[in-house]
Design a protein around this nucleic acid. Structure first.
Lengths: 248, 248
DNA sequence: CCAAAAGTGTTTATACTACACCCATGA
DNA sequence: TCATGGGTGTAGTATAAACACTTTTGG
């Protein structure tokens, strides 16, 4: 069982970029690191891969340790392997991003890590290469959310259109025309309008919607246009009036 | 420099999915594994991460060992960490995909690995989880090529439109209308038509084109529509006549 | 002169964008 | 009654899709 003689072995870490949405803003869950080096500095939640688990299991274990929850959306992002990325010891880190509905999980987050939700653009500086991980995760989230209805993972079972729009606007750091937004969302056939209204954020109240799970699983629709807005959000450039194709 | 006591250390491998194009077909470069376990079986080119290099360096080193070349397009794909994926010893593998113009590099590929180019759908069964890696790389290539003009990495400096179309059709395993194809490609502003013709594949000859490097670097265009064809290629499903959005 | 591949335009349908006013409610 | 946020429709523009014939040239 040890046929590869003489090869160097490495520490392997798993770090989680945990995105959350509270109905208004897209946020990031950070912890204060409890051990040296960089003790008490803000950091992504992470941990070392153990001998008897695979990478996905490790990411789930780490997320559960912090949030107490098991069924969170998790997706592998990237392996970070720079030699000096961790001054404690050379460590290769495989990062994952997670999507959480903040309200639902509010109470379950363990106090022992001094975890806090931050607005992404107002987060403290993070240790090691964790800021790089967050930036990559943001891009990946925009990228994936343009192709799959991923962002529903950040919402409660029932949600309003304004909440959904807040979420998309937070992810792409832009604003959408609400008439065009709802038209596009409705055209996916993924949303079911409910009779009930949510009155927590306006006097009139906004109708609640839920996902059509069958549709969601069978045919995952794309929100292609938002890629365009995504590019504007990231680069700030204006679209070439001639070419319709995206400049990245 | 060793502050993380008591943690398990792992073997780390890097495996490369090497795509190539010869003007006609999209291919995959495979080797016959030279050591146990699974000696002489077909495999992706790979190697172990060394103590003094980061992941990207390792991927480049491994690629150079096989092809003799340094400036190949390489992109990290995914970390594979299943416990039993390598029966020799537990190994976490970080996979990369590479893009090569087969003609250009034909002679430089080292003979010592018994490397061979295979049509992707006619490749032999690969060891470990390498088939899974190839499938993922194919999807990622389709995905990325729909957003960035990535596939030019597979072509020589000068190429014809029919070659380019062959390439796209190979990647997406579909056929495109050549009038619509060239119109879209031209609208990106990335292509410069040359005076010369390539007569190697027809009597009439096809005009050669090259990339406008300035445009290529400044504003990388999207080929969004081909995402649609990509979905048809992978799922075989027919588009919903009502919704324009992509079903994945 | 003919086979084989290259090259070229138009029409129709669909999707996207921009844009402004009324509604319902609780305080 | 009024301030706040929720909800709705249309017209113009741009993009995508479908479609078939002519050109060139070496053998």
């Amino acid at each position: 069982m040890n046929k590869y003689k003489g090869q160097h072995h490495f520490l392997l870490a798993v770090d989680c970029i945990i995105f959350g949405f509270d109905g208004k803003d897209l946020k990031l869950l950070l912890i204060q690191r409890g051990f040296e080096p960089e003790k008490n500095k803000w950091s992504l939640m992470g941990g070392f891969l153990e001998e008897n688990e695979d990478l996905d299991q490790a990411a789930n274990r780490i997320l559960k340790k912090l949030t107490g929850l098991e069924d969170i959306y998790l997706e592998q992002l990237h392996a970070f392997g720079k030699i000096d990325r961790d001054p404690g010891e050379r460590t290769v880190s495989v990062s994952y991003f997670a999507l959480i509905d903040i309200e639902r999980y509010k109470k379950q987050i363990t106090p022992e890590y001094s975890a806090e939700w931050f607005l992404i653009n107002e987060r403290p500086k993070l240790i090691f290469d964790h800021d790089e991980m967050v930036t990559l995760a943001q891009n990946q989230l925009r990228y994936r959310a343009a192709i799959q209805p991923l962002l529903f993972e950040l919402l409660p079972e029932q949600f309003t259109i304004p909440q959904l729009q807040n979420l998309y606007e937070g992810v792409y750091e832009t604003v959408f025309d609400k008439r065009n937004f709802i038209r596009k969302l409705m055209s996916t056939g993924l949303l079911i309008k409910l009779a009930a209204k949510d009155k927590s954020s306006s006097r009139k109240g906004a109708f609640l919607y839920k996902l059509d799970k069958k549709q969601f699983n069978a045919k995952l629709h794309i929100f292609l246009n938002y890629i365009n807005d995504m590019s504007q959000a990231t680069t700030g450039e204006v679209k070439d009036s001639n070419a319709s194709l995206l400049e990245v």
